[in-house]
Design a protein around this nucleic acid. Structure first.
Lengths: 164, 164
DNA sequence: AGTTTTTGTTAGACTTACCTAACATTTCTG
DNA sequence: CAGAAATGTTAGGTAAGTCTAACAAAAACT
């Protein structure tokens, strides 16, 4: 039986550790317990414990006092979390006009629970909005206007009043 | 100092119990442990334990073997969860075109973690789409077309080819 | 190199929220 | 209304994931 490459399900906590390690791995030469501790807002012993569990599960390579790295499997899982995170944060910021900070915070939580379908649709939504001009003004601009002014942009109002 | 009516933060589990009790309260005459157990996919002893905790916290009224009811505070919290749930599920289904079942499932998870701002924006988004006609076809219809056919609806294509 | 500072680990405890097995109460039914 | 069936509770366990305090190793400084 073919094993579909379906992402296994990890706990939110596990996903957070994997994501943080992957992100640190990109920006820093070596990933440290202390960094993870700060990044995830937990104390160092919690990190040590988590790393032990992740090692046992084959997602992380970590010897006592040594470097922290992801296994191929861990890396794959991390990439998947990061992909979800990015898409969500873009959707919240770009499509819904939420400030970057809040969008990030929401993405951090929602990334652990959103279904593949919902995620795919958010991505499709952004694609669509980007490529379809929808008349003179692009959709998101009109939506922004509505958000800022609390009422419809002029062209929508005109159209409505001329509707009867 | 004025106490703003800011919803206190409860755990996902607590919110699930409150939500379930409130929903059952509407459809059934009396809320039973068994029903909650089935609805939340946990065993009955877990429900009993949860009800005890909720009683102590003043969110639920429940005497041994007796009826289960929400206190005013519990009811307020439940309503807030339900409000989030509804908005989310509507947004996912209506705006993103996700099937009802998946939209429900996602809403059940996301309702516990979404920020007030993101929720508000989803609601605003639906309002906007509903009232602003955006040209000949309404926005969601074009989006649906894109979802179904995998390419832009004709009127978008025409406009693009005539753009140069 | 030796000492101090920083970083990392171990040990042990706590919280939340679940479970099973056994017991208790209600409710149904003959 | 008495026994059977269903429902609810108690007792005791388990798993995640966190914490503090104490100890160990590594790094940094002089």
């Amino acid at each position: 039986m073919l094993m579909e490459k379906m992402a296994k399900k990890y706990s939110a906590s596990v996903e957070d550790y994997l994501e943080a390690i992957a992100n640190l791995h990109k920006s820093e030469k070596a990933v440290k317990v202390k960094q993870l501790s700060r990044m995830l807002n937990v104390k160092m012993p919690s990190v040590t414990a988590a790393l032990q569990k992740l090692s046992e599960e084959g997602l992380v390579v970590h010897e006592k006092y040594g470097h922290i790295e992801l296994t191929p499997e861990g890396n794959e899982a991390a990439d998947d979390v990061i992909r979800r995170h990015r898409a969500l944060s873009r959707f919240l910021a770009q499509a819904l006009g939420i400030d970057q900070k809040t969008a990030e915070e929401d993405a951090c939580k929602i990334e652990h629970v959103i279904s593949p379908l919902a995620l795919e649709r958010m991505i499709k939504f952004m694609e669509f909005v980007e490529v379809c001009p929808l008349g003179e003004a692009k959709f998101p601009q009109r939506y922004r206007y509505y958000l800022e002014h609390g009422e419809l942009p002029p062209e929508c109002l005109e159209r409505r009043s001329g509707e009867r």
